[in-house]
Computed example of a mutant assay.
Amino acid sequence: MRERVVAACDGASKGNPGPAGWAWVVADESETPARWEAGPLGKATNNVAELTALERLLAATDPGVPLEVRMDSQYAMKAVTTWLPGWKRNGWKTSAGKPVANQELVVRIDELLAGRSVEFRYVPAHQVDGDKLNDFADRAASQAATVQEPAGSGLGSPEPPPSPDTPAKAPRRRPTAAKKSGGASSARTIKAKFPGRCVCGRSYAAGESIAKNAQGWGHPECRDQAASNV
């Protein structure tokens, strides 16, 4: 028996409310997706999809094995951890006295959590180099919401396609080789402050444009000619 199961779950709604789907994924010991399941919800909110994903994950895993659940939904995590005890004390009413939203799902999750060890871990969604399990669940839920069909490892489904919400990695740029200067240390020209003599033997006057070459300063055309002869 495994000491701990690591999993992720996610929900998606195209419109909120709109076509929705849920998904969960369980990892192997190297935290690589090992088995997964996704399903459609018809028209639903994102919160319903997130809670449904968690409910399906809890129902599909062994309650006798400690479970780590990775989620990107702050609402779903707080609903079943932070807020749930108060809701139960208040007769399934919020602090404002209103009925708890999605109560049926929250009650079902509360029943599935009873007597088992579950650790919730928040992971940000749609990150470059983000959590791989969360990304897998996100893609599976998004696909289920779009096509409104079930999928999963048990059905022999292919891995879900990339999510359009996750930014692509920027391609690595190859370092460019420095251009050969032909002995000239600078391509710029300046105005001479003092008169001088170019390497060609001709003199230049103060205020005349000069350029740096391998032997010093001189006429720009002499620098360019020397570079072309290299």
Results as ranks from 00 to 15, higher is better:
124 P>H: 09
125 A>F: 09
127 Q>L: 10
127 Q>F: 04
128 V>Y: 08
130 G>C: 13
132 K>R: 15
133 L>G: 01
134 N>P: 12
135 D>E: 15
136 F>P: 07
137 A>G: 12
137 A>S: 14
138 D>T: 01
140 A>F: 01
140 A>M: 04
140 A>R: 00
141 A>K: 01
142 S>I: 01
142 S>K: 02
144 A>S: 05
144 A>M: 10
144 A>Q: 07
145 A>N: 02
145 A>P: 02
147 V>R: 14
148 Q>W: 05
148 Q>E: 02
151 A>M: 09
151 A>L: 06
151 A>I: 01
152 G>L: 09
154 G>F: 03
154 G>A: 08
155 L>P: 03
155 L>F: 08
155 L>G: 04
156 G>E: 04
156 G>D: 05
157 S>T: 08
158 P>M: 05
158 P>R: 02
158 P>E: 02
159 E>P: 00
159 E>R: 13
163 S>L: 04
163 S>D: 10
164 P>D: 10
164 P>A: 06
165 D>W: 07
166 T>C: 14
166 T>Q: 08
168 A>C: 06
168 A>M: 09
169 K>L: 14
170 A>W: 02
170 A>V: 14
171 P>A: 12
171 P>V: 12
172 R>P: 03
174 R>H: 08
175 P>C: 01
175 P>W: 09
177 A>N: 10
177 A>W: 15
179 K>C: 05
182 G>N: 04
182 G>C: 04
186 S>L: 03
187 A>S: 09
187 A>H: 03
188 R>L: 07
189 T>M: 06
189 T>W: 04
189 T>A: 07
192 A>Y: 02
193 K>E: 13
194 F>M: 12
195 P>M: 03
195 P>Q: 05
196 G>K: 00
196 G>C: 06
196 G>H: 02
196 G>I: 01
197 R>K: 12
197 R>M: 07
199 V>I: 10
199 V>H: 09
200 C>N: 02
201 G>Q: 03
202 R>S: 08
203 S>R: 10
206 A>K: 12
206 A>G: 07
207 G>Q: 12
207 G>C: 05
207 G>E: 11
208 E>T: 06
211 A>Y: 00
211 A>K: 09
212 K>I: 02
212 K>A: 15
212 K>F: 05
213 N>D: 14
213 N>S: 11
214 A>P: 05
216 G>I: 11
216 G>K: 09
216 G>H: 12
218 G>S: 10
218 G>Y: 05
220 P>G: 08
220 P>F: 07
223 R>C: 13
227 A>E: 15
227 A>K: 14
